[in-house]
């Protein structure tokens, strides 16, 4: 009845975080890889249950901090020592103690930009349109319901068998998401 080419996936709805957690880990054990879960708050261990262990955010933030701080110090050193040394109050041109505050601020700024925009970028946001939004009742994903979606592009996906499998996890209901 539904073909894989017009289907995004199958969406199972649960009422508790524990049920979703169990469903996610069982799906992974059953061999499904391309899936996602949706919850109104971060459920502890859910990402791990889905097989997500890598998180590049810390590296991105570290690089952002390095870039911000490095540029900050270089900017002050270059402009005060190389480009236009001006004697102010007899202080050395390379007044390193006085370069620290701005270096520090720019380190934080660089890291914060990296954290927020890195998070958005890696998450593929902004993405105002997404197939799952069309599912009736999905608005509860930001209120009190928990969803597991097995995507149609999973090699193991088969609309009938996957539906049966999801049925065994005890969802409230299962909806097919069309592209």
């Amino acid at each position: 009845m539904i073909s894989a080419s017009t289907t995004y996936g199958l969406l199972a709805e649960f009422t508790t975080a524990e049920a979703l957690l169990a469903a996610a880990s069982q799906s992974r054990e059953a061999g499904y890889r391309r899936m996602d879960s949706y919850s109104p708050f971060p459920v502890e261990g859910l990402a791990e249950a889905m097989g997500l262990t890598r998180n590049r955010i810390p590296v991105v933030v570290f690089l952002g901090a390095l870039l911000g701080g490095g540029c900050g110090y270089f900017m002050q050193w270059y402009s005060n020592v190389i480009d236009y040394p001006i004697d102010v109050g007899g202080r050395p041109f390379h007044s390193w103690p006085m370069f620290i505050p701005i270096t520090f601020e720019l380190t934080i700024l660089g890291a914060a930009f990296a954290a927020v925009f890195g998070m958005l970028g890696l998450n593929g946001l902004p993405r105002p349109y997404h197939p799952v939004f069309a599912v009736p009742g999905f608005e509860h994903a930001t209120r009190d319901r928990f969803f597991l979606c097995i995507q149609a592009n999973d090699p193991q996906f088969d609309s009938e068998r996957t539906r049966e499998f999801l049925q065994t996890l005890g969802p409230v209901k299962i909806t097919s998401v069309s592209l």
């Binding site: 889905m50 927020v116 890195g118 998450n123 105002p128």
Partner: peptide, 17 residues
Amino acid sequence: AMGWRGSARHWHRYQTA
């Protein structure tokens, strides 16, 4: 909201960030 949909992947990075 920029299309936030509460995905576990998103929460994962979101929390760290």
